[in-house]
Write a protein that binds this DNA or RNA. Structure first.
Lengths: 218, 218
DNA sequence: GTATAACCCAAACGGATGTTCGCTGTCAAG
DNA sequence: CTTGACAGCGAACATCCGTTTGGGTTATAC
């Protein structure tokens, strides 16, 4: 058998790598040595161990010895550069969202590429319901990323909770306008069914401003 | 202490969940029962086990009994992982983009959550220039995700390269319409400055269809 | 030939790890 | 007060699982 260049992978090692990738895809945790062996047709755990060491030496994986399933792929096409931001549910013009008092109670999260996030500040995600902001290029079903902040500037798109007039109570997505002693919450839809809301500052609570939109087709 | 509604989480369970999320983020594999216990201050493995069962009952996790670290979070609407898709530059109505012949030469990439991607097919990203597709809720500066494919259906938003009339040559983002022996490339902007382009099939080359939009403000 | 390196195997070892069991304490309902 | 559900603890147990050991085979180098 010819001497092998150290960078090449044996067929068996390729198979192991492929199985590991598949297994993680399916289970969300890495396989054990014995599971790898069974999948690739290696009867001895020491051989799997040997080839895992080879794979680590060749830079394909990282091993954490002495713990079960201590195995990680270092696949170059994948990057871990995301952050989980809490997903608080849906928001629509005039329809309330439950404002989370206890952030640790939030169960759902959305993975967001790090470069969509601001360098500082808390960010959360909402799914938009309704066409209230259609002229702002925000459609029903879009996911918006919101930066938590107690104030926004005029013309910014904001998530605002209306406290006082009970018929309007709830959180809503609107353009925000300061008008002297009043605040205008303006929808972005020419349909007269969508009307601006004029309130005084103490009737509302600003939750944050929209910093990003993610949309999927189909 | 009042009887607890079965859906609520005890503080200890929340802490466990938060630790598991953190641990997976850091190691790429789930923690063991003992690791969880040490992190949240539980001395007995049986208590961790008990609370993990509670968490499973409440739908927060999925357990795979009888294997180590057989634990999976079920909370994110998006998958944790992202894939880097190649970023080919800008596209605007009528303005050319350099069509990459050699994909490995592409340096820039965009991190995209995995489930924004189709199960099969090549995907690339472009930045939109101009307001040509403003009525389709695609604005200047938006990033579009495009699935490479040689044909698209009528009414789909497509990246099309115009080959033949040299005055229109280049790649452009338009709604695609089949009209018998002709093809209409229709902008989505009511401004009469944006006019449809009518061409025959051999004058154009379809690069793919738009499957997602990512927008950042500021 | 011998030596060496790469690759493989089976078995045993020991720590890691999930499960089970008996027991305690608290609290609300009966 | 008693009961039962809930939450917790510690210890014992049986696997699971990575490691090590002692070998084997093959091909190349000397």
């Amino acid at each position: 058998m010819p001497r092998r260049a150290s960078k090449e992978l044996r067929p068996r090692q390729k198979a192991m790598l492929e199985f590991i990738r598949q297994f993680i895809d399916e289970h969300d945790y890495p396989p054990t040595i014995r599971e790898i062996g069974a999948a690739v047709g290696i009867s001895s755990t020491s051989v799997v161990n040997y080839n895992l060491n080879q794979l680590e030496q060749k830079g394909c994986i990282v091993r954490n010895r002495e713990v079960s399933r201590g195995l990680r792929l270092v696949d170059s096409t994948f990057s871990r550069r995301t952050q989980n931001v809490p997903f608080y549910g849906e928001i629509a013009a005039g329809s309330p969202i439950p404002v989370p008092e206890d952030p640790s109670a939030v169960m759902e999260h959305v993975a967001v590429p790090l470069d969509m996030l601001p360098s500082s500040g808390e960010v959360f995600a909402l799914r938009v319901r309704g066409q209230s902001m259609i002229d702002a290029l925000v459609d029903d079903g879009d996911i918006i990323l919101v930066r938590s902040q107690p104030d926004v500037e005029t013309r910014e798109m904001a998530v605002v909770e209306i406290l006082d007039p009970p018929e309007n109570a709830g959180a809503t997505l609107k353009y925000f306008y300061h008008h002297g002693r009043h605040i205008e919450l303006r929808p972005a839809n020419p349909d007269p069914a969508y009307q601006p809301i004029i309130v005084s500052p103490d009737q509302v609570r600003v939750h944050g401003k929209v910093i990003g939109v993610i949309r999927r087709y189909q």
